[in-house]
Design a protein around this nucleic acid. Structure first.
Lengths: 205, 205
DNA sequence: GTTAAGTCGAACACCGATGTTCAAGTTAGG
DNA sequence: CCTAACTTGAACATCGGTGTTCGACTTAAC
């Protein structure tokens, strides 16, 4: 058995490591299909006994946490790979596209996480990935390309909620997956555009 | 006992009617404080026996449904009272203010509803209230004040998600309740503004 | 080949809130 | 005042997933 708390695969035997990733994979597909799947279902999908699963993950919450962490880590990597050096508006479009792939695919996983994990924990998982967004938005604000009259944290929140809103609209059947990225982009670019009146600009004469 | 399924107070005895509203009131305050309150807690808060509560609401889901319906009905009335005849941008500001009061106060109730009720049911409850938003947005689109390159349903979704996002930000401590309405308004007005390039305009020469 | 690590299935205790039943007590309403 | 409607607390059945324990078996690793 593995009494070790976390999913650190070091020191484990080869078959154990194999099973851990199999369980994680199964958890991902199962949970993103139905946030309420039982542990038994996940174990079965992983081709593993329920007891074995509990040998690696002490509780349902711990499993969900691990699965969720994995996705957000994957998201972090995807966003890190985006070139955000150029025009902020163009970079934003790319970040949206990258984020969207993951959000669209694993939206149900977030529901599972919300059921199982504390709100701050969920936020903590997001932190790394969202930092890419925040960084770009902040730069855009400094450059005067994005509005400066609202705090960066709020712009990040709007980014996040717009993406998830699109996912919900797809689930509800009011939006086609194909159209989502473009709508999100159009919406956010407008939302981030500096308002016509007050704030100081650096670009204009 | 009351075998009648719903909360129709007609034909009930006076004390029964009184209890029903007391229960509903208690459910509202309790659920919006903690989405996971037990039925017993709600009954106690209503000054009523648990059995009495079950006499009026057959299940937890039914109670949540009724409480949720009540709030959305209240929201519907509040929105209906807003004068939306003038400048769409100004009217939107008013609708946001009205909506916000309710969203900010009962955000936790939505969480409870999401746990207990089917997604379509939740949507159905929203329908009436959201219709006011939709109507105004559609008019603004026709008038060329709001962008026409995105479907009205999407604009409604953005409205909804931005409000709730603000509520979440407050819960997370990243936003002060006082600042929310202004930020929401600024964000949505920008988001709804027609993009500079393509679409046909009626106002400009 | 030896050993420790890992796996397996079955069986179990647990849990806490939900929802039900009962018989006795109140209260509204005519 | 009489009756039917209503309330009440206590006690109970239930329920399904969770998490644990067991002893026997397999497999990786050296």
């Amino acid at each position: 058995m593995a009494t070790t708390p976390a999913g650190d695969t070091r020191g484990r035997r080869a078959d154990a490591r194999r099973n851990i990733t199999a369980i994680l994979d199964a958890a991902l597909t199962c949970l993103s299909r139905d946030p309420d799947v039982s542990i038994g279902e996940i174990a079965k999908a992983a081709g593993v006994g329920r007891v074995t699963l509990y040998g690696h993950f002490a509780s349902r919450a711990e499993l969900v946490d691990a699965a969720f962490a994995r996705i957000l880590q994957q998201a972090d990597q995807a966003l890190a790979a985006v070139d955000t050096s150029g025009d902020p508006r163009h970079a934003l479009t790319d970040l949206i596209a990258s984020s969207w792939r993951i959000v669209a695919r694993f939206r149900a996983l977030l529901v599972a996480a919300e059921r199982e994990l504390a709100a701050e924990r969920i936020r903590a998982h997001h932190d790394q990935a969202l930092r890419h967004i925040r960084t770009l938005l902040a730069r855009g604000q400094r450059d005067g390309v994005f509005r400066n009259d609202l705090p960066t944290s709020w712009l990040v929140a709007v980014f996040y909620s717009t993406l998830h809103s699109a996912a919900d609209e797809i689930t509800a059947g009011r939006l086609r997956e194909h159209d989502a990225p473009q709508m999100i982009t159009a919406t956010l670019l407008s939302a981030y555009t500096p308002p016509p009146d007050s704030p100081p600009r650096t670009t204009s004469a």
